[in-house]
């Protein structure tokens, strides 16, 4: 574990250097006002963000946004996996579900917002758009993963007289797991984007609302803080999913 190759070490060092360079540039541009007053130094943003008096404000926004993101993520993933499973088991349904997924993906979120606002509510719109974004990623990943089993495995299951459901549960789904987990990883930023967009269309709470109102009212540190929170949260969940992905790949491939 500790004995990483020289190349790995080089990659880690260079990567850390790159991230530090990025943060340093951010700070430098902010301190010297090269991009004007609307680009604050990183330290200003962090000071603003961690000021105890704002804990309640950010706490409320985070709990509103994160609960919608989680709900949308789980809903979208569940629908994606179930529909992909149906498309896999009942083959004639497959082209119709494929088309539905790509049409849903092609409709811009801004066009769906008024529908969701009417059909659900302003608060739930972010959840719905997040769910749709996640659904598309997971549906595509799962349908491609479900055909990943090898011909020898499929022959084996047929000779041993496995029923279609047994085959799905014991062969196709486990074989699809790496693809599904990769899909779940890439769906993380998609869920964040969906929820934040949804909040831009008139939600009364959440990080998205914070961004829009801060933008319009020139509350620069607040604006950057909200973006920083959303980005960091997405990055952390993405990193956690990368670890899960690594473990799954090791076991299932």
């Amino acid at each position: 574990m500790i004995a990483l190759s020289q190349e790995r070490w080089r990659g880690i060092v260079l990567g850390a250097f790159g991230v530090l360079l990025f943060l340093g540039l951010w700070q430098l541009i902010g301190v010297n006002r090269w991009a004007g007053l609307t680009w604050p130094p990183l330290t200003d943003v962090l000071t603003f963000l961690f000021n105890p008096s704002r804990r309640a404000l950010f706490g409320r926004a985070m709990s509103a946004s994160f609960s919608m993101i989680a709900l949308g993520y789980v809903t979208g993933a569940a629908i994606g996996i179930v529909l992909a499973g149906i498309a896999h088991l009942v083959h004639p349904l497959r082209p119709g579900l494929d088309r539905l997924a790509s049409v849903v993906h092609a409709i811009p979120a801004i066009a769906l917002a008024p529908l969701f606002i009417v059909m659900l509510s302003r608060e739930m719109t972010g959840m719905a758009i997040a769910a749709l974004n996640v659904f598309f990623v997971i549906y595509v990943a799962t349908t491609s993963g479900l055909v990943a089993s090898t011909a020898a495995h499929r022959d084996l299951f047929q000779v041993f007289g496995a029923s279609p459901v047994k085959r799905l549960m014991r062969l196709d789904l486990p074989a699809a797991l790496p693809a599904i987990v990769s899909g779940l990883k890439y769906a993380v930023p998609a869920a964040f984007i969906g929820a934040i967009l949804g909040e831009w269309f008139g939600s009364s709470r959440g990080l998205g609302l914070l961004m829009v109102s801060a933008m319009q009212n020139f509350q620069i540190p607040l604006l950057w803080s909200a973006v920083l929170i959303a980005s960091t949260a997405s990055l952390l969940v993405f990193a956690a999913m990368s670890v899960v992905e690594h473990l799954v790949y090791r076991r299932y491939r």
Binding site: T150, A152, H153, D155, L156, V159, F160, G161, R251
Partner: peptide, 19 residues
């Protein structure tokens, strides 16, 4: 016979499930 689970088979590819 295969539906009654009365066949046994082994291929050149061992076809063991890796998980």
């Amino acid at each position: 016979l295969s539906r009654a689970h009365r066949l046994g088979v082994a291929f050149q590819d061992h076809a063991l499930l890796p998980w």
